[in-house]
Design a protein around this nucleic acid. Structure first.
Ligand SMILES: [Mn+2]
Ligand SMILES: [Mn+2]
Ligand SMILES: [Zn+2]
Ligand SMILES: [Zn+2]
Lengths: 143, 143
DNA sequence: ATTTACCTGAGAATGATATTCAATTACACC
DNA sequence: GGTGTAATTGAATATCATTCTCAGGTAAAT
């Protein structure tokens, strides 16, 4: 059993919930790549892989995946919600090209530090934060 | 005519569009306060004010308000989209309390500077960016 | 074997947003 | 002040993602 599976199974057990075959398959598909994803494409992938797991099951699992720290909502730049891995990934931010959709991920400890100073100043307890930049990537600008 | 009205009227004219009474009322209601808003509450406010402007008209106006630089999408923390003023407001970021919904706005030039450095490094042309922190405000933490 | 709590797929329901359409309006030109 | 034209409107309808309902399943605990 892979690391995320172990962790997630533990999380479910600790809440009296079950690590069912459906849940395992969904989790595997999510961690099979490192890309951001949305529910619909995840569903399509599972279907292509021969699974017959319903959309409802995926939608029901998402809040548990978030609560357990497996995934989180990614920076929103489209009409629907997308997710990204948390487990096994350092905190990072995004540059999103509005023309081609490419996503550049980056870290910046300076920004993180300044941000924590601000939160201290306002006596604000951070749960989570996100930073996204919309713009045009260099490839798209050439044209 | 107030500043935002002038600007927006100019914008519309430059595109061969019209600054109708409905559009004026919507714009006025938006700039009557400094709060973030969503389409539904804006609609309710207009209705309470005696206006009978349809939801569709508001939804149709939003993209024009964004394109003209009057408003932009605010940091998303709920299921539906909210907006905030751009016109007359400096760039700022948000601390959002997930318990009481309070929003603390702040500026940080240090963060802005570091972010622009990152964008330079990736040769990325910024259109827009947003930074939001979810957490618990000090008042809510007391309890 | 019975109980109990949890899970599932299918489809219906919901809710935000977008679109259609027929009627109205604003503006430019006469 | 009329007229033509394109933009605009409200109401109704459609769309799309997400959530819920319901009628069976499952699996462990008693
Ligand atoms: Mn990412
Ligand atoms: Mn704001
Ligand atoms: Zn691009
Ligand atoms: Zn609070």
């Amino acid at each position: 059993m892979s690391e995320p599976e172990k962790q997630f199974a533990d999380f479910l057990r600790s809440k009296g919930l079950k690590f069912t075959p459906e849940r395992r398959e969904i989790l595997r598909k999510i961690f099979a790549t490192h890309e951001h994803f949305d529910v619909e494409t995840l569903f399509e992938k599972l279907k292509k892989g021969g699974e017959r797991i319903s959309l409802a099951t995926i939608y029901r699992l998402v809040p548990l995946l978030i609560e357990s720290g497996m995934i989180r909502q990614a920076t929103r730049c489209e009409g629907h919600v997308t997710y990204e891995h948390v487990f096994g990934h350092k905190l990072h931010y995004h540059l999103v090209c509005v023309r081609c959709g490419k996503i550049i991920e980056f870290r910046d400890e300076g920004i993180e530090r300044l941000l924590m100073q601000v939160c201290d100043k306002y006596d604000f307890t951070v749960i989570d934060h996100r930073l996204g930049v919309r713009g045009i990537c260099s490839a798209c600008r050439e044209e």
